[in-house]
Design a binder for these strands. Structure first.
Length: 104
DNA sequence: CGCTTGACACCGT
DNA sequence: AACGGTGCCAAGC
C-alpha cells in the first residue's frame, strides 16, 4: 500500500454530492504531504472506480484534475450530484466539503 | 480595507 | 533526478 493507495482509498470514500480537498485528505492520512495527494490522484490507477474528481483545492477550485480529462463532462456530473461548479470553482463548496475524518 | 494574483517550497512517484 | 501538483505567504491595486 503506497501513499497514493491510501489517498485513492480515502477519496474513494467520498460520498456522492460531497467534495474534499487535498489537504483534508492529507490530514486524514496524518500526513502533510497534500502536494503528494494531488500527485497520487494524478497517478490514480483506479481512476474509473475512484471519484478523484470530487477532490479539489482548498479554495474550492477543481485544481489540475479538470485540465486533464473532459472536465466539462465531469463538472456537469458533479453538478448533478449537487455540486455547483462555476467557471471551475465550486459553489458552497464548504457546505459540501466531506469530512474525511467522518469515515468510520 | 478587501480581494486577487504570483511565486515559492514541499511531498511523493 | 525531475516532474507534477497543492497550500500558504506576500505584494499590489
Amino acid at each position: 500500500m503506497s501513499f497514493k493507495e491510501s489517498v485513492l482509498n480515502l477519496c474513494k470514500r467520498i460520498p456522492k454530492g460531497k467534495v474534499s480537498t487535498y489537504k483534508e485528505i492529507a490530514k486524514a492520512l496524518n500526513t502533510k504531504a497534500y502536494r503528494a495527494v494531488g500527485n497520487a490522484l494524478k497517478h490514480n490507477k483506479n481512476a474509473p472506480i475512484i471519484p478523484c474528481h470530487r477532490v479539489i483545492s482548498s479554495d474550492g477550485s477543481l485544481g489540475g484534475y479538470q485540465g486533464k480529462l473532459n472536465s466539462k463532462k465531469k463538472i456537469d456530473m458533479l453538478k448533478k450530484e449537487g455540486i455547483i461548479v462555476e467557471k471551475g470553482k465550486i459553489k458552497k463548496f464548504k457546505e459540501k466539503l466531506f469530512n474525511a475524518f467522518s469515515s468510520s
